[in-house]
Computed example of a mutant assay.
Amino acid sequence: MPDKKKIFDVIAETERLIVRPLKSDDYQNWFNEFNNRFPSQYKHDKGRMDMSVCTEEWFHNLVEKHQELALSDVAHVFGIFRKEDGIHLGMVDFSTLAREVFQWARIGYSIHNQFWENGYCKEAVKEAVNLAFKELDFHRIEAHINLDNIPSINTARSIGMEFECIRKGFIYENEEWTDHLVYCINSK
């Protein structure tokens, strides 16, 4: 189990990016970039969203919830920020699937669509996986990906995740049980 006091101090950096937990003072930056999203670019892109409920108080509660989830080792949620100007680019998260002899997590990731095709997702996800192995003590990380989500498949492959299987009727979404690809990577 990771040292819980380190959760909020965990920061990963690449040449261009910082991956870290959200802070309450990230609100305006976070809100602006969600609000600046382009319309949906394909089926698995949420595109523009209704941000009317996302008040500063709502965001403060979200940050607190992320901290609670990290302290209880249920989930570890990180914002992705560009170093040069601090702009919020997206999110990456790890959900703990099992500890003890497994040390197993699921990864989720997204980059705001106005920042696509700059290599940010690959760079952030690769560094976040390193962080998960070194700081959160996971041994195995899985990505559960819709069969037709080519950008997510490409991201998983680009950081060294390997296709393992198709899990049939694995996740309930859009009012039906859907099959998902499982890509995985183990710590070395």
Rank of each mutant, 00 (worst) to 15 (best):
G79W: 01
H112R: 14
D45R: 11
D73A: 13
N113Q: 06
Y27W: 07
R48E: 15
K65E: 10
P2V: 15
D26G: 10
W177F: 15
G169S: 10
D9Q: 13
K6D: 15
K126V: 03
C184E: 09
E84F: 05
I87V: 12
W58S: 08
F31Y: 14
N174H: 12
A98L: 09
P21G: 11
F138K: 02
F78R: 07
G108F: 00
V74K: 13
E56K: 06
L17R: 01
G47Y: 07
K4C: 10
K5H: 13
K43A: 15
H76L: 11
R140N: 03
K46F: 07
L17P: 01
N36G: 10
R106M: 06
G47C: 05
F59W: 07
R99A: 10
Q103I: 01
Q28D: 12
M91R: 05
R140W: 03
I150D: 12
N174V: 10
S52T: 15
C121Y: 00
Q28Y: 09
M49H: 06
L181D: 01
A124W: 00
I111V: 07
S95G: 13
S158H: 09
S158G: 07
G47Q: 11
D85S: 00
M51R: 03
W177G: 15
G79V: 03
N36A: 10
S95V: 12
C54Y: 03
P151L: 00
A75M: 08
R140G: 00
C54N: 06
I80Y: 00
P39M: 02
M51Y: 04
D9W: 09
C121W: 01
I171A: 14
T14A: 14
E162D: 04
N186H: 11
V92E: 11
N149W: 06
E127M: 08
G79E: 05
S40I: 07
S110A: 14
L97T: 05
V182P: 01
G79C: 06
G160F: 11
N146D: 14
K83Q: 10
D9M: 12
G108N: 02
L89R: 02
E84M: 09
N154W: 04
L136D: 00
A143C: 00
Y109D: 05
I11F: 04
I7T: 14
G86N: 11
Q41E: 14
M91G: 04
V10L: 15
E56H: 03
W116S: 04
E176G: 10
K134C: 09
F34T: 02
H66A: 10
H144V: 02
K134H: 12
Q114G: 07
D50Q: 08
F34P: 00
I185T: 01
D3L: 15
N113K: 03
Y27A: 05
L131V: 13
I166S: 04
F78H: 07
N154H: 11
V92N: 07
H88P: 03
R16C: 06
Q41P: 07
G160C: 12
K168F: 04
V125Y: 00
D93F: 09
A143D: 01
E33M: 09
H60V: 08
V182I: 04
E135F: 11
L136F: 09
Y120M: 08
N154E: 12
N35P: 03
S52L: 11
K134F: 03
D3V: 15
D45C: 08
L136K: 00
F31R: 12
E13K: 08
K168W: 03
E175H: 15
M51V: 06
I145Y: 00
N174D: 14
S24N: 10
H44D: 11
R99F: 08
F133V: 15
